[in-house]
Every structure is written in structure tokens, then in C-alpha cells.
Write a protein that binds this DNA or RNA. Structure first.
Lengths: 339, 339
DNA sequence: TTCTTGTTCGTTCACGTGCACGATTTTCTT
DNA sequence: AAGAAAATCGTGCACGTGAACGAACAAGAA
């Protein structure tokens, strides 16, 4: 591997000049610049990362991470991703702060103000889809602090990248599984989080897409919102089973798993249902093992954390812009036996 | 973060002495050694990785990677894992060589000799389960070159670690899926690779384990070896369907997917079968999309590559022994819609 | 004593990059 | 033409570690 020193020698200039050219700082004659660039190209110069890392020590860069859902296992997985990736990248001599707010827009706005006081150089956020959050993110971005969204996107904001999963494809996968498990014949009840959350809605669209294309004998009987609330999902299930006694399958697009499954556990001991959910949080795992949930579709929060931190370090320390605007994690299906 | 320099200052010695103590080289008075260790402990000293990396440049370490199955997509995925991880770790200034032999013990033995001529400091190998390979690995290990097995283990050799998947659990997952897709009622034909390959046999054991426990109405009608050969699996399917016309499902534990599925494609247009396979190579994907394969169970070769290289770098450059002897990758189920 | 051997430790260079400072040359101004 | 301003470039320090070299001193042998 070529070093700056070697390039300098070949170009007949000092290493300082090579440094100026390659980091395109000004103050270099056009001709020498051209010459140096030519040689660097020829030798396929790549900055030695150890050198970069060592020099980056004194920059004292700090990355802020803002999540919601305190105690939510999904975010615990994601945090593990941040931690593991940090251990890999810590040699660049940066630090990070994680703040986790409660699941409301207001709390997130407060937490956002708090984390900004910490003099962060970049922000990773799992944002609420709210105008005030978008506005704040744009302000932060304008102040020269790059923002990466993780798990939930804000496509209309000035964030530089998004790391998450393809919710439409997730819905399609749910549709495919539903067809396979029921041999193409079922009456389905859907419990969704909120019809205002883009990701939840896409999971329904993807589901309908596959069902309407491949499974004419599967009907969607009812859709109800539960806003990730266990009591609401408990009651929604009860109501659905009374109003639509023919229901043989349920599809949960979001939270409220614990309440919904408890309801099913009490009611359907004799007639087993096909139940498909998302993520593998505590309640998902519990009811997979109890045989209530047939399969759950995971969006790999661990690698969302890994990916988001990688992009941020690339941007802040290696001066590399993200290759894609959106990074989508793989969709994994889990059943009881593969947990 | 504490540096050696700071420790030296506090201990009233030079940085060189601190270096000697912390890298336990000899030539240090017991008392000063104790003092330095005490302070290092107190300050929770962790070597700065950028410094280590920079100093490691001149070591000129080379890691050898030996795979088989030229052109096999499974190993292409694994290679991508090696490459990506190398990009992360390349700052330690090491290099690597990948050799890929044909799928026979003899060819691997030859390739093994060849790769050893390259003056490698560590070896990552996807080994054949053969006495001669084991013997060779032990010799290499005795010569001071650590060996890590990937994808296939050799538990009785002197390899320092194994990175792969839990084949028994993979078999259990296949059993669970078979139960769900067939609603617990099926006659199954099994096409396995070789009964002498530990992993293939475990996939059958895991399958039987779940079937016998949960699905009394699923019968295994026949088991045949195809040694990853497409012609053999083509014929095996034909034979099975004649001898056991009641078969409604197939379970492939290994290769020969292309031949087997082609056979099914021709014969079962009218009566759709449930088909479960492993991995997501080209033929798996093709026949998933054609609706012949119902689901395939993946063992994440990408992360096997990532994991193996991480362990080797830890050992050779950071002087850290592997935390666990066996690292198992996650089991992912894929259907057409989630590809 | 004098020389040798061994123990203990400080000094120095190397690794590759970022960046500040200052030196040199060129161009512009009056 | 002489001084001021601008353009261009070299030098040197810092980042933290590994490892070779050699200095200082003590203990033992002749």
C-alpha cells in the first residue's frame, strides 16, 4: 500500500503538499496538484486507517443517539449493535451518548434538546413522525450536525441516511406465510398499531398485495388499531371474535402482542389459530413458545444499530458520504424451533 | 482513556518500562512491576487500538483462507463476509490469501500444502471431515499457526475455534416448518448429502426429534443419499415417488437441489408438494420463485466469514484468545416473499 | 582491583496521518 | 524599483504503541 510519503518522493514535493492535495485544502499550484493526483491515482492510494485513526484522537468527536421506548427489548438489541460496532470503531477516539425517552413526541422533543446540550457532532435518531421533530432535525442539520434516522424514516427531512427495514416487503412476507400456513384458506383479523404510522400501513399494504395476488380464498374480515397498547389489543381481539366468529387467523403489524395473545390464549384453546406477528420481543417469544404465535417476522434491530453507527463514523471521521440513502436490513422469519 | 505515558508518569518510570510490564516481557524488577500493574488496574488501562494498529503495520501478518466448492454461491457469500470484515480490520496492516479447491479431500490436501508455502501466520479453513486433514491441521497448529474452522467443524483437531451453524437446531426448524406447512399430516421423503457428514446427519436427527415429539401423523417414508450430486438427486426423487406414491413432502438436507427440484417440477405440476431445503444458493432461489420450494433455512455464511476473520485477527494481532470455542450463527427462514 | 556477566531501565525510532507554523517565492502596488 | 501582499510549499509536532538499542548499576569471577 502506498503512503503519502512515497507519493511525495515520486512527485518531488513534501508530504505536507501531498496532504493538502489529497484532502483538497487550497494553497497548491494547479500543476503540482495535478501531478500529485496523477501519481496517487496510479498507485491507488488509500489513506492508512491506522494513521487516520491515530490522528483523529484529538478531534474529540461525540455522537448522540436518541431512541424511545425505554425498556423495550427491541431497542436493547439495537443498543447492543451500537455497542459492538463502537468496540470495533472506538480506535477513532470518539465517544457517544445514548438517551432513551418515553414513547411520546413531547418527551422526544425534550430529550432532543437535552442531547444537543452535550456538544454532539452527529445525531442518530429513531424519530417520531411529527412535524415538530422534522423541523428540529432540519435545524440540527443546518447547524452542520449530520443526522441519521434508524428504524423509522423521515424521508422529507434533511437526514443524510436511513437504516431500517423494508416494511412493505415485511407485509408481503406475512402474506406469503399466511398463505402457506393456512393452505390458502382463511379469514383474517388484523391488529395494527396506528394507521398514521407509515410503516404499519405499509405492512398492511404488502400483506394485501400478496393475498389478493395469490390467495383468493383468504379474506380480511376486520382491521383495528391498538396503538401498541395491550389493553386495547386485548379488547380488539375479543370484539373481532364476536363480530366475526369465522376468523381463523390473526395478523399483528406492531405492538400490543401481550394483550392480544393473552386474549387468544384464553379463547382459542380448542381451535388453534394461525398468528403472525413482527419482531421478537419478550411477548413474541413467550407466545411463540406457548404455540399461540405461529411465526414472527424480524427486522434485525441489531444490524440497524450497527449500520447507523457505521454510516455516522464514515461521515464524521472518514469524510465519506453514505453510499445509499436507504439501507435496508434483512427480513428473518422465526418459528418456535429456530429461536 | 489512560495511556501508557500517563501510567508511566504516575508510577515514576519510563513508558518503556510500562510497556514491558503490560506486555509481560521480562527484565523488570518485581516491585516496579507490581506498582505499574496496580496503577494500570486502577486506571482501567486499555491499549489504544489506533496505536496498536499503527505499530502492527510492520509485523506483516498474513492470514490464509482455504475453502472448497469453487463457484459455489454459498462460499461467495462467505467470501463477501471476509472482504467486508477485512475492510474494517485492514488498519492492522495485515493481508490475506484465499484459496478455493474442488470438493474433494485430495484437492484440499494439495491446496493446503500450497497455501502453507505462502508463509501464512494463521489459517481459516472449511475442512473436509477426513483423518488426513485432521492430521495436517494438528501439524500446522503445532508449528505455531493457529487454525480456525468455519462452516464445518473438526472438534477432535487442535483448531482454536469453530464458526458455523447449529445443524441440529436447523433440523428442528425444518421439522417445525414441515408441521406447520402440512398441518401436521404428511408423508416425507428425505434427500440427504452423505450419512458420513456429521452436519447432514444432525439435520436429520433434529428433524426427527421435532416430528416424533409434535407430529404423530407425519411419517418419514424414505431417506436417500445424493452426495450433493444433481443427477443422483434427480433419480432419487423419481425412484421415491414410484416406490412411495403417497409422498406429499420432501426434505433436502444439503445439495442436489437443482436436480431434485427439476424432477419435482416435471412430476408434480398438479399435486403441489411441501419442500424444505437448506441455504439460499442459486437453485434454491430459482425454485423458491417457481413455487417448488416452500421454504429454505439459511445458516448465514456471510457472518460465518465475518466471525472467523474477527477471531483470527484477535488472536494474531490483539493477542486475545477466542471467547467461546464455538460460535453459532443465527438460523434464518426464507420464503419467496422474503428473499 | 579489574574485568565480565547479568539485571534493570531509559531513550529512541518507526508506523501514517492531520494540521499549525513559518519560510520561500511570486505577484501586485505605488 | 522597492516594499507589501499573496501564493506556494516545507518542516515539525502530535497521536499511542512496539521493539531495538544502549546506559547505568550490581553481583560475581579472575
Amino acid at each position: 500500500m502506498a503512503t503519502m510519503q512515497e507519493i511525495a518522493k515520486l512527485a518531488g514535493v513534501s508530504r505536507g503538499t501531498v496532504d493538502r492535495v489529497l484532502n483538497n485544502r487550497d494553497g497548491v499550484n494547479e500543476e503540482t496538484k495535478k501531478k500529485v493526483l496523477e501519481i496517487a491515482e496510479l498507485m491507488d492510494y488509500q489513506p492508512n486507517k491506522a494513521g487516520v485513526a491515530l490522528a483523529a484522537q484529538k478531534k474529540n468527536i461525540k455522537i448522540g443517539i436518541l431512541l424511545y421506548g425505554e425498556g423495550n427489548l427491541f431497542f436493547e438489541d439495537m443498543k447492543q449493535g451500537f455497542i459492538d460496532r463502537y468496540n470495533d470503531l472506538s480506535l477513532y477516539g470518539f465517544s457517544y451518548v445514548i438517551k432513551q425517552s418515553k414513547s411520546h413526541v413531547r418527551e422526544q422533543l425534550v430529550a432532543l434538546d437535552e442531547i444537543l446540550k452535550e456538544d454532539i457532532n452527529g445525531l442518530i435518531i429513531s424519530p417520531f413522525n411529527d412535524e415538530r421533530i422534522i423541523k428540529k432535525i432540519n435545524e440540527i442539520s443546518d447547524a452542520g450536525i449530520p443526522v441519521v434516522t434508524v428504524n423509522t424514516d423521515l424521508p422529507d427531512s434533511k437526514r443524510i441516511a436511513y437504516v431500517g427495514s423494508d416494511t412493505f416487503k415485511g407485509g408481503q412476507t406475512a402474506g406469503g406465510l399466511m398463505g402457506l400456513f393456512t393452505k390458502g384458506k382463511a379469514e383474517v383479523g388484523i391488529i395494527t398499531g396506528s394507521r398514521n404510522v407509515h410503516g404499519h400501513e405499509e405492512r398492511i399494504e404488502g400483506f394485501k398485495n400478496i393475498i389478493s395476488k395469490n390467495y383468493p380464498d383468504i379474506q380480511i374480515e376486520a382491521i383495528e388499531e391498538c396503538h401498541d397498547d395491550d389493553y386495547k389489543s386485548y379488547e380488539a381481539i375479543q370484539r373481532m371474535l364476536i363480530e366475526h366468529p369465522g376468523i381463523t387467523a390473526f395478523y399483528f403489524t406492531a405492538g400490543g402482542i401481550y394483550g392480544g395473545c393473552k386474549s387468544l390464549y384464553q379463547l382459542t384453546q380448542k381451535t388453534p389459530m394461525t398468528v403472525i406477528t413482527f419482531d421478537s420481543l419478550e411477548p413474541n417469544i413467550e407466545y411463540l413458545n406457548k404455540g399461540i404465535i405461529t411465526a414472527t417476522i424480524c427486522q434485525d434491530p441489531y444490524h440497524q444499530g450497527v449500520g447507523a453507527l457505521s454510516i455516522m463514523v464514515d461521515k464524521l471521521i472518514l469524510d465519506k458520504d453514505p453510499e445509499q440513502e436507504k439501507t435496508l436490513t434483512e427480513i428473518n422469519i422465526k418459528i418456535k424451533e429456530s429461536l
